[in-house]
Simulated scan of single mutants.
Amino acid sequence: MTESTLDDEIYDLRFYLQRSVRYHMRRASFFVKWQRITSFVGVVFGSAALTTFIEQVPDAVAIYSALIITVASAFDLVVGTGQHAWQHNDLRKRFLELAGELDARPPSEKLVAYIWHKIRRIEADEPAARELLNLMVRNDVIRSKFSKEEADGLVANICWVKRATANLVDWGIEKY
């Protein structure tokens, strides 16, 4: 392997690791926020003060409040937002450790093979990826590495609705 090829391999590895770290950081953050919202809804709509207030309003408000608590709690329970947050945080840490190993050792073909091997082992533990979210974090890494003018020509243009819901809906990337 020539030196320029090795440099390209190292660059590709760093890019991949940065993208993976950012991806799992976004996923963990999403699940933590969702869990906090669910907890907030449960506390507020389940509190005695609100229950007292609801007794003075039409029955429909009480029914809707109970429905909100039930749906939010069911989603949290079924999806396991806390578990997903921990899983993505753990995966992020594992990719960060690999990035540290890559930076701490002198570049070599053996190191590249070793890091890719470790990446594949981490990927075996990953849940299915959300492709549009992957594309979004790819854009983030590009913006972090290039000037605005260069980055604008390299990033994918993703509509705001898909960006806002990329953690909830697996849009795919056929037409972003």
Rank of each mutant, 00 (worst) to 15 (best):
V78Y: 01
F30N: 07
A72V: 06
E101V: 06
K145P: 02
S39F: 13
F30D: 01
Y23S: 01
R27Y: 07
K33I: 00
K162Q: 15
A151D: 10
A62F: 03
W116E: 12
E55N: 11
V161G: 10
A151S: 10
E131F: 09
T81W: 07
Y64L: 05
I115M: 01
Q35K: 07
S147K: 00
E97V: 14
R92T: 08
K145M: 13
Y11K: 11
A85W: 01
V41N: 07
R22N: 06
A124D: 05
Q35L: 06
Y64N: 12
G42C: 06
D59G: 14
H88P: 02
K162E: 02
M25K: 15
D90C: 08
A113W: 00
A156R: 01
I119W: 05
K33V: 03
V61P: 05
T51L: 09
E123T: 07
A128N: 02
V169R: 02
P106N: 15
H88T: 03
Y64M: 04
E3D: 14
E97M: 11
A62P: 01
G42A: 00
R143N: 10
V161M: 10
D76R: 01
T51P: 09
H84W: 09
A66Y: 09
A72I: 05
R22H: 08
Q56F: 14
F15R: 03
P58W: 12
K33S: 00
I37N: 05
T165D: 06
K93N: 13
I158P: 04
I158S: 03
E174C: 11
I122V: 01
R120H: 09
A85K: 08
V43A: 10
I37V: 10
L154Q: 08
A99W: 11
D140F: 04
T81L: 00
A62E: 04
M136Q: 08
R19V: 12
G100H: 05
R92E: 04
Y23P: 00
